[in-house]
Amino acid sequence: MTLSRTEPATGSGKPPVRPAASGGGSRAEERRSRRYRRDARWSPYAFIAPFFLFFAAFGLFPLLYTGWASLHNVSLHDPTHMEWAGLHNFSRLWEDEFFWNALRNTATIGVLSTVPQLAMALGLAHLLNYRLRGSMFFRVVMLTPYATSVAAATLVFALLFGRDYGMINWALGLAGFDHVDWENGTLTSQIAVSSIVIWRWTGYNTLIYLAAMQAVPDDLYESAALDGASRWQQFWHVTIPSLRPTILFTVVVSTIGATQLFGEPLLFGGSQTGGGSHQYQTLGLYLYEQGWFNFHLGRASAIAWTMFLILLVIGLANWLIARRLQRSSSQ
């Protein structure tokens, strides 16, 4: 810290110069300056190298190798033995009703979990943006589900959604409704699985929206208020438009998360089939079943790559929408 005080004037903006005080022109001096330049030139790369090395080893290489493995028959029992299969794993998926079932389930659960989650988060963030007592308390408490692991949360929700003794059916009974067999129904089980996702992530998204709302310039609200806009109108005409990039961002992140859903459907019924008739088996779970219960690592790789392609399509769609929004808002 003292360094800033000794040499404040030379600093601003220019590339570092050799200190004049030590200038003797000796050979040692020259060697030092060469070492100094080499250090300045290569140290940035050294600093970013760990990230890229680890990503290459545990991200990029597996990504490509999964693609390679998806073109082979690979058994879980002998994973180093690969047998060329061409596109057979993919064509088999195309005709596989369980794959389509899993894709459908993933999409349904994705919508069921993302839409209410983000809508509630938006509303809650709006409320938290008021001048509020105990504001930090509310924020921390709403984030606690995020600290709860998928496994712990799913085990509790499986009990709460129990058919005979679950609390939710008990409450429905009090209100005069029949018991629902949550786990065995298609839609009901998907609602139950979605509710776990909603519970865990609503608070997190609320904080993201709240941060974005606090970044909205004050004068926008002030001029809206001068124009006589009510709270509700200010929310619709100032807050929401200002938050559009953030909303898009959370939609993408939640969609990516929903595509990868795995722990919730695995533990809700405790089986990799995702229910007796696969009624809530997601793509992630189907990958797991194919690879680690049917022992077809090649097929699992093909599913993984299909998921990746789906994500790329989502990313592309997001990019197009974002560009469209940008253009419409700049007009």
């Binding site: 545990f58 990504l63 999964t66 994973p79 990516i256 990868q260 990958l287 998921m307 990746f308 994500l311």
Partner: peptide, 22 residues
Amino acid sequence: VIGTMMVPPQLSVVPLYMAVAK
């Protein structure tokens, strides 16, 4: 770096499993 966030973990489990087995 930001782009790498798009790569889902499912894409690495099969090769990682093979490496771990080896």
